[in-house]
């Protein structure tokens, strides 16, 4: 996977930032507009996948590694679990401890926004990791290239 033509690379440079920004918006505003952590995380993963597809495998080895995706995935899952455990301070699992605030404002809805962020990190990193695994792994095992997928 050598990356694509200069046209694709330049368009990716222009567009990728906006895609990631849209993903972050969907995650952060999940408690007000449609979307939320899962959809936003998938958009984030899609933007990163676009970068990997356009710039090729070497870029993926250097900047967006599989290890980074694994780490971010675990961090997101732990963050979500931590928020859930913090609920015990208020009595039960997943208690909405933070101030609820005013409906319709960005800083409202208590733990829902942090939960969305955690899920967004988790889902985005997880799906991107799966994408990298599918796209890059089998080239790494050269010699029995199809065996990596089917074995």
């Amino acid at each position: 996977m050598q990356g694509m033509s200069p046209i694709v690379k330049n368009m990716t440079r222009l567009v990728a930032g906006f895609i990631v920004l849209f993903g972050v918006y969907i995650v952060l505003y999940g408690h007000m507009t449609p979307g939320g952590g899962f959809a936003g995380g998938v958009i984030l993963a899609g933007g990163l996948a676009l970068v990997v597809l356009a710039f090729g495998e070497e870029f993926a080895r250097k900047a967006l590694t599989h290890e980074a995706a694994k780490t971010a995935d675990s961090i997101g899952a732990m963050l979500f679990l931590l928020i859930a455990l913090l609920g015990y301070a208020g009595g039960v699992f997943f208690t909405n401890l933070l101030p609820v605030g005013e409906v319709g404002k960005l800083f409202s809805a208590g733990i829902i926004a942090p939960c969305n962020i955690a899920i967004g990190i988790k889902v985005g990193a997880g799906l991107f990791g799966v994408f990298v695994a599918l796209a890059v792994f089998r080239r790494a095992g050269a010699g029995s290239s199809t065996g990596m997928i089917e074995g």
Binding site: G30, M32, G36, A84, G101, E102, A109, G110, I112
Partner: peptide
């Protein structure tokens, strides 16, 4: 008003049924 989420779906997903 209890969850503070304008989006009912998120209010259920991440508060009532977290």
């Amino acid at each position: 008003r209890g969850t503070g989420a304008a989006n009912y779906v998120m209010g259920i997903l991440l508060d009532y049924r977290a």
